[in-house]
Design a protein around this nucleic acid. Structure first.
Lengths: 393, 393
DNA sequence: GTATTTTTGTCTGATGGTCGATCATAATTG
DNA sequence: CAATTATGATCGACCATCAGACAAAAATAC
């Protein structure tokens, strides 16, 4: 009858809360940019003072926490804010596209420090592309060592790198080798992820939201986040919407060899291939003619409309709270407008409740997402625990 | 040098670590039908003998573990298998459809002990339907108390029961009240879930597989499991594919008030509404005429084809390893055949690698899935821990 | 200036869960 | 019978954690 819901700890009792390890305390601090005072932490975690201070000593020693300027207080000694020490820690975010790559240097707090954009040809041998990227990276780093690096790739990325990339633009790449080479070159852990999925992570605003991010540049891809969790799929191919069949594309040949694919209508490659745009050599040229060439806007709008139709199905199926559209083509106003309109037209009303269809936050959402993924991976509680053990030993 | 571990993970990846609590030991035992000997457990967990025995004492005392017949051994004293005690524990699985309900009594090991099928009208007041279900349940139980019950509903089910059911068949239901009334009536915890999602859980064979289960009877619904995790969506509406727009249904009015919905083509309700089937009053009658009425099979096949088209999009997006099709209409051979063919035609090849499109395992997959969900919920490590604390106090 | 308040810093001893080890017993095979 | 393996029941030692005491620091209120 008397329900002992509240578990009370006593002397010698093992920790009551699930989260009293140094790793979890760091996670707490990471979750709040303003940080917490020691008193806050005692209050939140319910730990004994001596225990908490021991943890903090270890975190200080490892350089994971620092003491920020004192906070304001009504009376009494002002508390000193403790924060996750993301100062002077750099992350490299490399975004690989079909024709260009972006190399971004970010702070751990996800501010972009410096960027390079360079033309590449993804069809060339992996080694050549990688060595150019590494050269740019070294220039940006200027001798500094990053804590981690992330790479966004325009193809499905299986977490175990076992996926056949056969039919994709990266058919001739070896992801395991890519990771090994980069880790050796940069002397830091390297994480590989699909580009659109990275972008989706970069678009996340609230910890448990559900969102779909779509990237439309040369190709089309999407990243899906359900209740804060990234959906990767059975073979890491989740979100690869480019080859969903849409009626509008019937009869149009896709580079995958089939016809009717979404990518054959709603992608930069498809736009470039249209006869009226034969004069444009690159997607960038075409996009730049958005205002000057009267043919561009209608074509872009039509592409957006088709994408909207396909997205409506995903929205009905997965019920996200937000759709972010990015990429060179995706951010064009007419594209987004047509896409949004078609979604509102096609999707079932209950799934449209509170649904936002918005442009992707910034051109660098992918790099920001990669930075976040790297941070999550590097400073996951278990990993922090390992780090501290190594330090001590 | 820096020790570099491969980075896997990011937001949404649950932590993995050694677990030595009683709850985790029970989970270990639950995962193996044959059970483990004490020596096995010492080996697997690496715990001290005294500690492990203490845990086992508690689990024995709570009736959660029992000692099975001795196992084989090459020499020496034969080990005694310890198993999760699922004997004499009953779970009630109630499947609510538009016109019929199935009440199933299952053992915790998911064998069906007894079943009842009864006609209901989901349009009637909730209290009336529920009281009939409870009556049937009491008859099946015959005085015994179940450890838990699960209800599969043909509508989106928000875990917090906050979702507006406005536009669904359950518009006049109150899920919180349903749960409260049933818990009081059955004197056990009650879990509510969408029917197709329950079915998906019932179809799971391997712990980390990805699959999509589709239920086609009066309505259409689906359940999505990604790497072993059920996808519920932002408002619990994930998998509600009935109102995805398909070109084939253009001009056809759906009961949701729009036109072009998948449910307006590929559902039992849509079939029944077709002019050539005006003679049939119920879906069951129509399905029973599958062999005798020459009009039925083509119509069913066409419905399957349309579903296949919609599924191809989901398959491309989520990249599951298996698609299971069930429900009164879904299991018809021509339906499945047409659906499978259309999927193979429409979906992108990489997402078809190793993809199986199969009929749902049994008519009772939903009940089996509910049973599994109830078990997972009842015997989750944290909950077991609570249970033991209460026992002790 | 003093009083008050709140945070921080540094101890202490007490508790109890976990380990590791020992010794004993049981139940098989050969 | 011996050898082997699993189980049963202890025990003391360790040590992470707790609770609490005490003092100093740094601000506000009067």
């Amino acid at each position: 009858m008397s329900q002992q819901r509240t578990l009370v700890g006593g002397p010698g009792q093992p920790p009551v809360g699930p989260a009293t390890s140094a790793g979890h305390i760091l996670q707490l601090l990471r979750s709040s940019p303003a940080g917490y005072s020691r008193a806050d932490l005692l209050d939140i975690t319910g730990m004994a003072r001596s225990t908490l201070y021991e943890r903090l000593d270890a975190l200080f020693a490892a350089g994971l926490v620092y003491e920020a300027t004192p906070l304001r207080s009504q009376r009494g000694r002002p508390p000193r804010a403790l924060r996750f020490d993301d100062r002077d820690k750099l992350v490299l975010g490399i975004e690989i596209g079909h024709t260009h790559a972006g190399v971004h240097l970010l702070s751990l707090s996800r501010d972009i420090v410096a960027s390079r954009r360079l033309p590449i040809d993804i069809g060339q041998p992996q080694e050549d592309v990688v060595s150019r990227l590494m050269e740019q990276s070294r220039q940006l780093l200027d001798g500094r060592r990053p804590v981690g690096a992330g790479v966004g790739l325009p193809a499905p990325v299986d977490p175990l790198h076992r996926l056949g990339l056969e039919r994709t633009v990266l058919a001739h790449w070896d992801l395991q080798r890519l990771q090994d080479v980069m880790e050796a070159s940069l002397d830091c852990p390297v994480l590989l992820e699909n580009d659109a999925r990275s972008m989706a992570v970069g678009e996340v605003r609230h910890p448990f939201e559900s969102l779909v991010a779509v990237k439309v540049s040369t190709g089309v891809g999407s990243g899906i986040i359900v209740r804060g969790a990234l959906v990767r799929g059975a073979h890491g191919a989740a979100g690869d919407i480019g080859h969903v069949r849409v009626p509008e594309a019937a009869g149009r040949l896709c580079r995958c060899g089939r016809d009717g694919c979404l990518a054959a209508m709603a992608s930069g490659r498809a736009l470039l291939a249209a006869p009226q745009f034969a004069a444009y050599r690159t997607l960038r040229q075409l996009v730049d003619a958005y205002d000057s060439d009267p043919d561009v806007r209608p074509a872009v709008a039509e592409a957006g409309r088709v994408l909207g139709r396909a997205l409506a199905a995903i929205i009905g199926t997965l019920n996200p709270g937000r759709v972010a559209v990015g990429g060179l083509v995706g951010v064009l106003p007419d594209f987004l407008q047509a896409c949004r309109r078609q979604i509102l037209d096609d999707a079932f009303e209950p799934s449209l409740v509170d649904l936002e269809v918005v442009p992707a936050d910034s051109r660098a959402a992918t790099a920001v997402g990669l930075c976040r993924l790297v941070e999550e991976s590097l400073y996951a509680p278990e990993r922090v625990e390992q780090m501290l053990v190594q330090q001590a030993g």
